[in-house]
């Protein structure tokens, strides 16, 4: 195969990965890693480098729209980014000492967890009473809905912060946005309405990924020949996905895709156990 055919196939594959990531809400990066490793036989370290770029691109691209609508809680995002960036740098450092097969197995496990998380029922209610820390840190806010502005408050700030550190470590270690873990922290611990937690999580993914991306770039994980088809393909796919989402209810698609992703995750775990990475 020549570089030209490889790049075109990779571009199309990344487009599908971006589309899938956007429709399931898992993010573009997560699908890029199995695509590169299982389909193209690329070393998982190059795949992680490319996936981080995909995460930054899709997060920043879609965040700009949500921020404009005023749904994203920027203060909350900034505060929790302390946890996710510290975690991401730690994760990227641990990654050097972690065997690639272990990373693949971990990746598979996180992927299955993330897929299950997207099917979970989300917190819709807005709390009217927040914890002391939420006032102190000015984290309570409001967001626009069909029926006007809805105010919400949050609690368990400390627990949410600790869970975000774990999300950051996993993000740095595996090169993914770990949006599912971020939403889990904001949803179950801090009781933030689902629309705010998903958009704020998405907003944070770019910064979290950038914190570990600089480490990976300097370590030589980012290959230009992989980077350009992946960035352009995933961005295009995510863009199509966001257009499709406004026109249809993806619930049924979500089940199908999550089943497919679980299958891919099991394949990653199997290959990891068989020491194929």
């Amino acid at each position: 195969m020549t570089i030209l055919t490889f790049s075109i196939i990779l571009l199309l594959g990344s487009y599908l990965a971006g589309l899938l990531g956007s429709l399931t809400g898992l993010g573009g990066g997560v699908v890029v890693i199995p695509l590169l490793t299982l389909v193209f036989g690329v070393d998982i370290r190059y795949a992680i480098g490319a996936a981080l770029l995909a995460s930054i691109a899709t997060s920043s691209g879609s965040a700009s729209a949500y921020v404009k609508e005023g749904i994203t809680n920027i203060r909350l995002g900034m505060f929790l980014e302390i946890a996710t960036t510290i975690g991401a740098v730690i994760g990227a450092l641990i990654a050097v000492y972690t065997p690639t097969n272990t990373i693949a197995i971990l990746f598979g496990a996180v992927l299955i967890f993330s897929a299950a998380m997207t099917l979970r029922k989300k917190n819709q209610e807005a709390l009217t009473e927040g914890s002391k820390l939420s006032y102190l840190l000015k984290l309570n806010s409001s967001y626009p809905t069909k029926d006007g502005e809805v105010a919400y408050k949050l609690k368990n700030v400390g627990a949410g912060f600790s869970m975000m550190t774990v999300a950051g470590i996993i993000s740095g270690l595996l090169g993914i946005g770990s949006g599912a873990l971020k939403v889990l922290a904001m949803d179950t611990a801090m009781r933030i309405p689902f629309k705010v937690s998903t958009t704020t999580s998405n907003f944070m993914i770019g910064v979290t990924a950038a914190a570990s991306a600089v480490v990976y770039l300097q370590r030589g994980y980012m290959d230009p020949g992989l980077a350009f088809p992946v960035i352009l393909g995933v961005l295009g796919g995510a863009f199509t996905g966001s257009k499709l989402l406004t026109r249809m209810n993806p619930q049924v698609l979500r089940y199908i895709f999550c089943a497919a992703i679980t299958f891919v995750a099991l394949q990653m775990i199997y290959n990891g156990v068989q020491h194929k990475f």
């Binding site: 195969m1 020549t2 570089i3 030209l4 690329v42 370290r45 030589g220 290959d223 020949g225 992989l226």
Partner: peptide, 29 residues
């Protein structure tokens, strides 16, 4: 960059991505 890359190296065989070597200083600094 991608277009220039394909114009120059499009017909060359794919580099070996299966074995991780890491990129040189030209790509990392």
């Amino acid at each position: 960059g991608g277009v220039i890359y394909l114009l120059h190296f499009g017909q060359a065989p794919i580099p070996n991505y299966h074995d991780f070597k890491g990129e040189g200083a030209g790509y990392t600094t």
